[in-house]
Simulated scan of single mutants.
Amino acid sequence: MARGPGKGERAGDAPEDACARLQAWPWTCNGCQHRRYGCGKALRCEYSAARAQTLADGLLSGARRGVNAKEYDFERAMATIRSDVARGLSPAQIACGRADRFKVHPTTIYRWIAAGYAGMSDAELRRKVGYKPRREPSAAKPTSHGPERSYKAFSALPEEGRARAAEMDTVIGLSKDSQCILTLYSRPCKVQVCLLLPEKTSSAVAAALDMLERAIGKPLFQRLFGLVLTDNGCEFSDTEALERSAFHGTARTKVYCCDVRASQQKGGCERNHVELRKLLPKGRGISFDDLDGRDLAVVMSQLNSEPRPSLMGLSPTAMLEAADPEAAAALMDALGIEEVPYGRLDLTIGAVDRDREERGLPPLA
Protein backbone atom coordinates (compact mmCIF):
# COMPACT_ATOMS: atom_id res chain seq x y z
CA MET A 1 0.00 0.00 0.00
CA ALA A 2 1.08 3.60 -0.42
CA ARG A 3 2.66 5.35 2.58
CA GLY A 4 0.27 7.45 4.65
CA PRO A 5 1.08 10.81 6.20
CA GLY A 6 3.89 10.87 8.71
CA LYS A 7 3.57 11.31 12.44
CA GLY A 8 2.05 14.68 13.18
CA GLU A 9 0.74 15.18 9.63
CA ARG A 10 -2.95 15.46 8.70
CA ALA A 11 -4.69 12.54 7.01
CA GLY A 12 -6.30 14.43 4.15
CA ASP A 13 -7.29 11.29 2.15
CA ALA A 14 -9.44 9.54 4.78
CA PRO A 15 -13.21 10.36 4.63
CA GLU A 16 -14.88 11.97 7.62
CA ASP A 17 -16.82 8.81 8.53
CA ALA A 18 -13.67 6.64 8.53
CA CYS A 19 -12.41 4.96 11.66
CA ALA A 20 -10.55 7.24 14.02
CA ARG A 21 -7.41 5.04 13.62
CA LEU A 22 -7.25 5.99 9.93
CA GLN A 23 -7.49 9.72 10.68
CA ALA A 24 -4.37 9.81 12.85
CA TRP A 25 -0.91 8.29 12.90
CA PRO A 26 -0.06 5.48 11.98
CA TRP A 27 -3.05 5.67 9.56
CA THR A 28 -3.54 1.85 9.47
CA CYS A 29 -5.65 -0.79 11.16
CA ASN A 30 -2.59 -2.57 12.52
CA GLY A 31 -2.84 -2.97 16.29
CA CYS A 32 -6.63 -2.54 16.41
CA GLN A 33 -8.47 -5.14 18.50
CA HIS A 34 -11.29 -5.19 15.91
CA ARG A 35 -8.85 -5.77 13.00
CA ARG A 36 -9.99 -9.32 12.32
CA TYR A 37 -13.19 -9.74 14.36
CA GLY A 38 -16.14 -7.49 14.88
CA CYS A 39 -15.09 -4.57 12.65
CA GLY A 40 -18.03 -3.21 10.65
CA LYS A 41 -16.23 -0.29 9.00
CA ALA A 42 -16.35 -0.24 5.19
CA LEU A 43 -12.90 1.37 4.87
CA ARG A 44 -10.00 -0.63 6.28
CA CYS A 45 -6.25 -0.24 5.64
CA GLU A 46 -3.62 -2.74 6.79
CA TYR A 47 0.17 -2.49 6.41
CA SER A 48 2.16 -5.59 5.30
CA ALA A 49 5.95 -5.35 5.60
CA ALA A 50 6.46 -8.30 3.22
CA ARG A 51 4.19 -6.76 0.56
CA ALA A 52 5.85 -3.36 0.96
CA GLN A 53 9.32 -4.94 0.57
CA THR A 54 8.21 -6.77 -2.58
CA LEU A 55 6.94 -3.53 -4.11
CA ALA A 56 10.15 -1.71 -3.17
CA ASP A 57 12.31 -4.46 -4.67
CA GLY A 58 10.26 -4.38 -7.85
CA LEU A 59 10.73 -0.63 -8.09
CA LEU A 60 14.51 -0.94 -7.74
CA SER A 61 14.69 -3.82 -10.21
CA GLY A 62 12.65 -1.92 -12.78
CA ALA A 63 14.92 1.10 -12.44
CA ARG A 64 17.96 -1.03 -13.28
CA ARG A 65 16.35 -2.97 -16.13
CA GLY A 66 17.67 -2.48 -19.66
CA VAL A 67 21.06 -1.34 -20.92
CA ASN A 68 22.80 1.74 -19.57
CA ALA A 69 23.67 3.20 -22.97
CA LYS A 70 22.22 5.32 -25.73
CA GLU A 71 20.26 3.39 -28.35
CA TYR A 72 22.65 4.23 -31.20
CA ASP A 73 25.77 3.35 -29.19
CA PHE A 74 24.24 0.06 -28.04
CA GLU A 75 23.20 -0.95 -31.56
CA ARG A 76 26.68 -0.21 -32.84
CA ALA A 77 28.25 -2.25 -30.01
CA MET A 78 25.94 -5.22 -30.68
CA ALA A 79 26.76 -5.10 -34.40
CA THR A 80 30.45 -5.27 -33.52
CA ILE A 81 29.86 -8.14 -31.07
CA ARG A 82 27.85 -10.11 -33.62
CA SER A 83 30.55 -9.61 -36.25
CA ASP A 84 33.26 -10.82 -33.85
CA VAL A 85 31.22 -13.85 -32.74
CA ALA A 86 30.75 -14.77 -36.41
CA ARG A 87 34.55 -14.79 -36.71
CA GLY A 88 34.78 -17.38 -33.93
CA LEU A 89 35.86 -15.04 -31.14
CA SER A 90 34.65 -15.65 -27.60
CA PRO A 91 32.96 -13.00 -25.39
CA ALA A 92 36.13 -12.82 -23.26
CA GLN A 93 38.25 -12.07 -26.32
CA ILE A 94 35.70 -9.53 -27.59
CA ALA A 95 35.64 -7.70 -24.25
CA CYS A 96 39.43 -7.54 -24.29
CA GLY A 97 39.91 -6.72 -27.97
CA ARG A 98 37.16 -4.07 -28.11
CA ALA A 99 37.95 -2.35 -24.82
CA ASP A 100 38.83 0.85 -26.67
CA ARG A 101 35.31 1.05 -28.17
CA PHE A 102 33.11 -0.13 -25.29
CA LYS A 103 33.88 -1.30 -21.78
CA VAL A 104 31.82 -4.36 -20.91
CA HIS A 105 32.43 -7.55 -18.93
CA PRO A 106 32.37 -10.93 -20.77
CA THR A 107 29.43 -12.11 -18.64
CA THR A 108 27.44 -9.09 -19.81
CA ILE A 109 28.06 -10.09 -23.43
CA TYR A 110 26.89 -13.63 -22.62
CA ARG A 111 23.74 -12.16 -21.02
CA TRP A 112 23.04 -9.92 -24.02
CA ILE A 113 23.38 -12.86 -26.40
CA ALA A 114 21.11 -15.05 -24.25
CA ALA A 115 18.53 -12.23 -24.15
CA GLY A 116 18.40 -12.21 -27.95
CA TYR A 117 19.76 -8.72 -28.52
CA ALA A 118 20.64 -7.97 -32.18
CA GLY A 119 18.87 -11.20 -33.16
CA MET A 120 21.55 -13.37 -31.52
CA SER A 121 21.13 -16.55 -29.48
CA ASP A 122 23.20 -19.05 -27.53
CA ALA A 123 23.26 -21.24 -30.64
CA GLU A 124 25.91 -18.90 -32.06
CA LEU A 125 28.30 -19.78 -29.22
CA ARG A 126 30.12 -22.98 -30.10
CA ARG A 127 30.82 -24.06 -26.54
CA LYS A 128 27.14 -23.87 -25.55
CA VAL A 129 25.91 -26.12 -28.36
CA GLY A 130 28.95 -28.31 -28.99
CA TYR A 131 28.51 -30.90 -26.26
CA LYS A 132 27.56 -34.51 -26.95
CA PRO A 133 27.06 -37.68 -24.86
CA ARG A 134 30.27 -39.37 -23.81
CA ARG A 135 31.23 -42.73 -25.22
CA GLU A 136 30.96 -45.83 -23.11
CA PRO A 137 34.34 -46.74 -21.57
CA SER A 138 36.23 -49.61 -23.17
CA ALA A 139 38.82 -51.96 -21.77
CA ALA A 140 42.21 -50.38 -21.12
CA LYS A 141 44.94 -51.14 -23.64
CA PRO A 142 48.46 -52.00 -22.53
CA THR A 143 50.97 -49.15 -22.88
CA SER A 144 54.26 -49.41 -24.74
CA HIS A 145 56.28 -47.28 -22.32
CA GLY A 146 57.74 -48.25 -18.99
CA PRO A 147 57.31 -46.63 -15.57
CA GLU A 148 60.20 -44.23 -16.28
CA ARG A 149 58.01 -42.44 -18.86
CA SER A 150 54.70 -42.67 -16.98
CA TYR A 151 52.63 -39.76 -15.77
CA LYS A 152 53.64 -40.65 -12.23
CA ALA A 153 57.28 -40.11 -13.21
CA PHE A 154 56.32 -36.83 -14.90
CA SER A 155 54.50 -35.69 -11.74
CA ALA A 156 57.64 -36.40 -9.72
CA LEU A 157 59.60 -33.79 -11.71
CA PRO A 158 60.17 -30.35 -10.18
CA GLU A 159 57.26 -27.97 -10.62
CA GLU A 160 59.38 -25.61 -12.74
CA GLY A 161 60.13 -28.42 -15.19
CA ARG A 162 56.47 -29.46 -15.48
CA ALA A 163 55.39 -25.85 -16.01
CA ARG A 164 57.64 -25.42 -19.07
CA ALA A 165 56.66 -28.76 -20.66
CA ALA A 166 55.06 -29.05 -24.09
CA GLU A 167 52.01 -31.20 -24.79
CA MET A 168 51.84 -33.28 -27.97
CA ASP A 169 48.91 -34.90 -29.77
CA THR A 170 47.48 -35.57 -33.24
CA VAL A 171 44.31 -34.32 -34.92
CA ILE A 172 42.65 -36.34 -37.68
CA GLY A 173 40.26 -35.38 -40.47
CA LEU A 174 38.09 -37.85 -42.35
CA SER A 175 38.41 -41.55 -41.55
CA LYS A 176 39.76 -42.22 -45.07
CA ASP A 177 42.49 -39.56 -44.84
CA SER A 178 46.15 -40.53 -44.78
CA GLN A 179 47.42 -37.16 -43.60
CA CYS A 180 46.90 -35.84 -40.08
CA ILE A 181 48.16 -32.95 -37.96
CA LEU A 182 50.76 -33.20 -35.21
CA THR A 183 50.23 -30.53 -32.55
CA LEU A 184 52.78 -29.24 -30.06
CA TYR A 185 51.42 -26.95 -27.34
CA SER A 186 53.77 -24.88 -25.17
CA ARG A 187 52.39 -24.56 -21.66
CA PRO A 188 54.13 -21.29 -20.64
CA CYS A 189 53.15 -19.19 -23.70
CA LYS A 190 50.21 -21.25 -25.06
CA VAL A 191 51.84 -21.31 -28.50
CA GLN A 192 50.35 -23.99 -30.78
CA VAL A 193 52.58 -25.60 -33.43
CA CYS A 194 50.91 -27.65 -36.18
CA LEU A 195 52.94 -30.00 -38.38
CA LEU A 196 51.50 -32.01 -41.27
CA LEU A 197 52.12 -35.76 -41.12
CA PRO A 198 51.87 -37.91 -44.28
CA GLU A 199 50.61 -40.76 -42.10
CA LYS A 200 49.75 -41.39 -38.49
CA THR A 201 52.83 -43.41 -37.53
CA SER A 202 55.67 -43.07 -35.06
CA SER A 203 58.22 -42.73 -37.87
CA ALA A 204 56.24 -39.82 -39.38
CA VAL A 205 56.13 -38.07 -35.99
CA ALA A 206 59.88 -38.54 -35.54
CA ALA A 207 60.52 -37.16 -39.05
CA ALA A 208 58.35 -34.09 -38.32
CA LEU A 209 60.26 -33.41 -35.10
CA ASP A 210 63.54 -33.83 -37.04
CA MET A 211 62.37 -31.24 -39.56
CA LEU A 212 61.43 -28.78 -36.83
CA GLU A 213 64.72 -29.32 -35.00
CA ARG A 214 66.76 -28.70 -38.16
CA ALA A 215 64.72 -25.56 -38.92
CA ILE A 216 65.21 -23.82 -35.55
CA GLY A 217 68.34 -25.57 -34.27
CA LYS A 218 68.81 -27.97 -31.41
CA PRO A 219 69.37 -25.37 -28.62
CA LEU A 220 66.11 -23.56 -29.41
CA PHE A 221 64.25 -26.87 -29.88
CA GLN A 222 65.34 -27.95 -26.41
CA ARG A 223 64.29 -24.59 -24.93
CA LEU A 224 60.80 -24.91 -26.40
CA PHE A 225 60.23 -28.68 -26.51
CA GLY A 226 62.87 -30.16 -24.22
CA LEU A 227 60.15 -31.88 -22.17
CA VAL A 228 57.08 -33.37 -23.87
CA LEU A 229 53.90 -34.90 -22.41
CA THR A 230 51.76 -36.95 -24.79
CA ASP A 231 49.22 -39.77 -24.80
CA ASN A 232 49.44 -43.48 -25.52
CA GLY A 233 48.62 -43.34 -29.23
CA CYS A 234 50.40 -45.75 -31.56
CA GLU A 235 52.06 -42.81 -33.31
CA PHE A 236 53.99 -42.06 -30.09
CA SER A 237 54.97 -45.65 -29.28
CA ASP A 238 58.61 -45.33 -30.44
CA THR A 239 59.67 -42.88 -27.75
CA GLU A 240 63.36 -43.46 -28.39
CA ALA A 241 63.01 -42.24 -31.98
CA LEU A 242 61.09 -39.20 -30.79
CA GLU A 243 63.79 -38.37 -28.26
CA ARG A 244 66.72 -38.92 -30.63
CA SER A 245 68.15 -35.72 -32.11
CA ALA A 246 68.56 -35.21 -35.84
CA PHE A 247 72.09 -34.02 -35.06
CA HIS A 248 74.47 -36.91 -34.31
CA GLY A 249 71.77 -39.02 -32.64
CA THR A 250 72.08 -37.37 -29.22
CA ALA A 251 69.05 -36.70 -27.00
CA ARG A 252 66.94 -33.64 -27.84
CA THR A 253 63.94 -34.10 -25.57
CA LYS A 254 62.39 -36.30 -22.89
CA VAL A 255 58.98 -37.85 -23.60
CA TYR A 256 56.44 -38.77 -20.91
CA CYS A 257 53.01 -40.34 -21.40
CA CYS A 258 49.67 -39.69 -19.74
CA ASP A 259 47.72 -42.45 -18.04
CA VAL A 260 45.33 -44.45 -20.22
CA ARG A 261 42.06 -42.58 -20.93
CA ALA A 262 43.27 -39.55 -18.95
CA SER A 263 43.53 -36.85 -21.60
CA GLN A 264 42.79 -34.24 -18.92
CA GLN A 265 46.40 -34.67 -17.81
CA LYS A 266 47.36 -32.68 -20.91
CA GLY A 267 44.33 -30.44 -20.78
CA GLY A 268 46.00 -27.40 -22.33
CA CYS A 269 46.55 -29.23 -25.60
CA GLU A 270 43.03 -30.66 -25.60
CA ARG A 271 41.51 -27.24 -24.90
CA ASN A 272 43.54 -25.64 -27.69
CA HIS A 273 42.20 -28.24 -30.13
CA VAL A 274 38.82 -26.55 -29.63
CA GLU A 275 40.33 -23.40 -31.14
CA LEU A 276 41.93 -25.45 -33.93
CA ARG A 277 38.57 -27.00 -34.78
CA LYS A 278 37.10 -23.54 -35.32
CA LEU A 279 39.36 -23.24 -38.37
CA LEU A 280 39.14 -26.90 -39.42
CA PRO A 281 35.70 -27.92 -38.13
CA LYS A 282 34.33 -31.43 -38.01
CA GLY A 283 31.25 -32.39 -39.97
CA ARG A 284 32.08 -30.13 -42.93
CA GLY A 285 33.62 -32.83 -45.14
CA ILE A 286 37.11 -31.35 -44.83
CA SER A 287 39.77 -33.80 -46.00
CA PHE A 288 43.16 -33.37 -44.37
CA ASP A 289 44.68 -34.92 -47.50
CA ASP A 290 43.95 -31.57 -49.19
CA LEU A 291 45.98 -29.61 -46.64
CA ASP A 292 49.47 -28.30 -47.31
CA GLY A 293 52.08 -26.42 -45.28
CA ARG A 294 50.71 -23.00 -46.23
CA ASP A 295 47.24 -23.94 -44.93
CA LEU A 296 48.74 -24.85 -41.56
CA ALA A 297 50.72 -21.58 -41.53
CA VAL A 298 47.42 -19.69 -41.85
CA VAL A 299 45.88 -21.83 -39.09
CA MET A 300 48.82 -21.23 -36.74
CA SER A 301 48.87 -17.49 -37.49
CA GLN A 302 45.20 -17.16 -36.52
CA LEU A 303 45.42 -19.44 -33.46
CA ASN A 304 48.53 -17.81 -32.04
CA SER A 305 47.22 -14.27 -32.58
CA GLU A 306 44.13 -14.74 -30.40
CA PRO A 307 44.11 -12.53 -27.29
CA ARG A 308 43.97 -14.88 -24.32
CA PRO A 309 42.39 -13.77 -21.02
CA SER A 310 44.78 -16.16 -19.22
CA LEU A 311 47.69 -14.17 -20.71
CA MET A 312 46.26 -10.80 -19.58
CA GLY A 313 44.93 -10.13 -23.07
CA LEU A 314 48.19 -10.93 -24.87
CA SER A 315 48.37 -13.37 -27.77
CA PRO A 316 50.60 -16.48 -27.59
CA THR A 317 53.01 -15.04 -30.17
CA ALA A 318 53.28 -11.77 -28.23
CA MET A 319 53.90 -13.73 -25.04
CA LEU A 320 56.63 -15.84 -26.68
CA GLU A 321 58.27 -12.75 -28.19
CA ALA A 322 58.36 -11.14 -24.75
CA ALA A 323 59.73 -14.26 -23.05
CA ASP A 324 62.21 -15.46 -25.69
CA PRO A 325 62.60 -13.18 -28.75
CA GLU A 326 65.21 -15.44 -30.37
CA ALA A 327 63.05 -18.56 -30.16
CA ALA A 328 59.96 -16.64 -31.31
CA ALA A 329 61.70 -15.27 -34.41
CA ALA A 330 63.18 -18.66 -35.35
CA LEU A 331 59.89 -20.54 -34.84
CA MET A 332 57.77 -18.01 -36.74
CA ASP A 333 60.22 -17.84 -39.65
CA ALA A 334 60.52 -21.62 -39.89
CA LEU A 335 56.74 -22.26 -39.91
CA GLY A 336 55.50 -19.10 -41.65
CA ILE A 337 53.60 -17.82 -38.61
CA GLU A 338 52.51 -14.18 -38.75
CA GLU A 339 51.03 -11.92 -36.09
CA VAL A 340 47.45 -11.17 -37.19
CA PRO A 341 45.96 -7.89 -35.85
CA TYR A 342 42.67 -8.14 -33.98
CA GLY A 343 40.68 -6.53 -36.77
CA ARG A 344 41.76 -9.27 -39.19
CA LEU A 345 41.32 -12.23 -36.85
CA ASP A 346 39.02 -14.87 -38.37
CA LEU A 347 38.68 -18.12 -36.43
CA THR A 348 36.60 -19.81 -39.10
CA ILE A 349 37.39 -21.93 -42.11
CA GLY A 350 36.91 -18.80 -44.20
CA ALA A 351 40.41 -17.63 -43.25
CA VAL A 352 41.97 -20.76 -44.80
CA ASP A 353 39.69 -20.74 -47.85
CA ARG A 354 40.47 -17.10 -48.67
CA ASP A 355 44.19 -17.82 -48.65
CA ARG A 356 43.66 -20.88 -50.85
CA GLU A 357 41.61 -18.80 -53.28
CA GLU A 358 44.49 -16.32 -53.59
CA ARG A 359 46.76 -19.24 -54.47
CA GLY A 360 44.30 -20.57 -57.04
CA LEU A 361 43.28 -23.61 -54.96
CA PRO A 362 39.72 -24.85 -54.33
CA PRO A 363 38.17 -24.29 -50.86
CA LEU A 364 38.48 -27.03 -48.25
CA ALA A 365 34.78 -27.21 -47.40
Rank of each mutant, 00 (worst) to 15 (best):
A318D: 07
I172E: 13
P309M: 12
A114N: 03
A18L: 07
E159Y: 00
A118G: 05
M332H: 12
E148Y: 04
Y72M: 08
L361A: 10
R277V: 12
P91I: 10
L182D: 00
R51K: 10
W112G: 01
Y151G: 00
A330E: 14
T253E: 01
G116F: 04
E136G: 08
E159F: 02
A139C: 13
F74A: 15
L227H: 10
E240I: 06
P341Y: 03
D289E: 04
Y151I: 08
V205F: 09
A297Y: 07
V85D: 01
L311V: 11
D13T: 06
V299G: 02
A77C: 12
L209A: 11
A20T: 03
R10K: 15
R111I: 03
Y110N: 11
A79W: 09
K132T: 06
I109H: 13
Q179H: 13
C39P: 08
A251T: 12
A297K: 04
R214H: 12
L279I: 12
A114D: 04
D177V: 01
M300A: 12
L55R: 15
E240D: 13
L174H: 07
R127W: 15
R76F: 02
A241I: 10
E326K: 07
R98N: 15
K218T: 14
R82A: 15
A18N: 06
S287C: 06
P341N: 06
A322Y: 15
A156Q: 08
L224S: 06
L209Y: 10
T239P: 00
F288V: 15
A204H: 01
G130W: 14
R223M: 02
D57S: 13
L197F: 04
K7C: 07
A86L: 14
A92V: 09
S144R: 01
A50C: 10
M211C: 09
K7D: 06
L303Y: 00
L303W: 01
P5G: 15
K152G: 09
E321N: 07
C96Y: 10
I216P: 02
F288A: 14
A118L: 09
G58N: 08
D259F: 13
E124H: 09
K70D: 15
R3Y: 08
T170S: 14
D289C: 06
H34Y: 10
F288C: 14
K70T: 14
